[in-house]
Design a protein around this nucleic acid. Structure first.
Lengths: 225, 225
DNA sequence: CCAAAAGTGTTAGTGATACACCCATGT
DNA sequence: ACATGGGTGTATCACTAACACTTTTGG
């Protein structure tokens, strides 16, 4: 018998809650499920679930994400835990959220199951949410807005090749504000993240746009802090 | 019988680990305990402990902190959780660290008990530490360095009245680098955090220094992000 | 008068913001 | 030729970083 059991140390349920963002049609979206069972039946919530004893936290988040939405191969970043007493009516549950920004084209949402419907929902126009997930999403959104300006996080969401305009529209969707075209390009060029290709995107009745791709595809921050 | 019990959802031990910094003699210190029992007997570790079912996370951190070190009335900030399998030999334990920067004059370390000796240890010259506490402290230190430059966090650590030099030395101790006197004062005046008092500090064979105090004593950030 | 810390301004460089016009293409 | 989005440069401002001398006190 383990010493912790001997001293009857309390144990807790732990959920991991993936907070997955994407941009679709120049609108920031978050991946939610519509709950088909209590608690919070018929309301939206994060696609989380309970960790198992033999899983790493991040592994568990990836598993839940795939089980409930079909999304996989995602780089997750842990956020602060939520553990307030009473936040889950089923018992004392500590939730550990995991953040990601992904390219929605690269994944396919699971067809609706009997337990959950996964859906992309506008992050700036959230529906009513179960648990304290509104708070969790709000905090995650602040993290996203901060991080996309301090790191090369955006590479996660863009296709292999893209135009400056497409990249800018992605930033605008995430930050929920308009950016100046010239300043945006200057900044991006200074950061030296992009390869500017010779190919162009021929589309529409206007000058073809040069395509770019990211030089590096591993996540890093620009600033010290 | 609760639905979570019915489905045999796994449960976990959770510890809270206060990561408490201060500055003593212009050196950044962290509050550690010397463990008198296994695991990691005779090594240093964070003064944490197991949460109880009826406690909020932060409450638990405050309780453990007071029990093991005598330190109380501290503003804590939750940091990311650590949950790797095997990080605690006694079982699967998820640790949630809580950060604070405090004024060591305002508190009194508990006299040594049979279970723990609490001690201030140089944060930039850490001894061997138990568990994964070295990693936790490193992450917390980065948080501290970032936060003290983006918020009025320093008010936590200064006495009611202090001189510009004392404040600067505190910043230097935290950041582990020297700062320019003129630039530091200019920056502080721009931020408009300080009341400059008429009193002076008479001490030593040199020009007396004007005393300052903080205008606000509630924590806030300057920057958006 | 000497030692020791307090106190003070200017300059140069860097990054952020604001802003308006020409270009290449399809129809 | 015109509509559409692609593409570019400059001026101003704010912030940062570098840097040296004078002031006030006690001994």
């Amino acid at each position: 018998m383990n010493i912790l059991e001997k001293f009857k140390v309390d144990k807790f349920y732990i959920t991991v809650d993936p907070v997955i963002f994407t941009v679709i049609n120049d609108e920031l979206k978050i991946l939610l499920i519509k709950r088909k069972h209590p608690p919070f039946q018929d309301m939206f919530a994060l696609p989380g679930g309970f960790i198992k004893s033999n899983e790493e936290l991040e592994q568990a988040a990836l598993r839940e994400l795939e089980e409930e939405t079909g999304v996989k191969n995602v780089l997750l970043k842990q956020l602060n835990a939520y553990g307030q007493i009473g936040r889950d009516s089923r018992g004392r549950v500590i939730s550990i959220p995991f953040f990601a920004l992904i390219n929605s084209d690269k994944i396919k949402l699971k067809s609706k199951t009997d337990a959950y419907d996964a859906e992309w929902v506008s992050a700036y126009k959230l529906p009513k949410l179960g648990f304290d997930h509104k708070k969790i999403i709000g905090d995650a959104l602040n993290y996203l807005k901060s991080e996309i300006q301090k790191s090369n996080l955006a590479f996660q969401i863009m296709s292999e090749k893209f135009t400056f305009s497409e990249l800018q529209h992605t930033y605008e969707a995430v930050l929920n504000e308009e950016l100046d075209k010239r300043n945006f390009r200057k900044k991006m060029r200074e950061l030296d993240l992009l390869k500017e290709l010779k190919e162009t995107k021929m589309e529409g009745a206007h000058r073809p746009a040069k395509l770019c791709s990211f030089k590096q595809k591993n996540y890093f921050r620009f600033a010290k802090f």
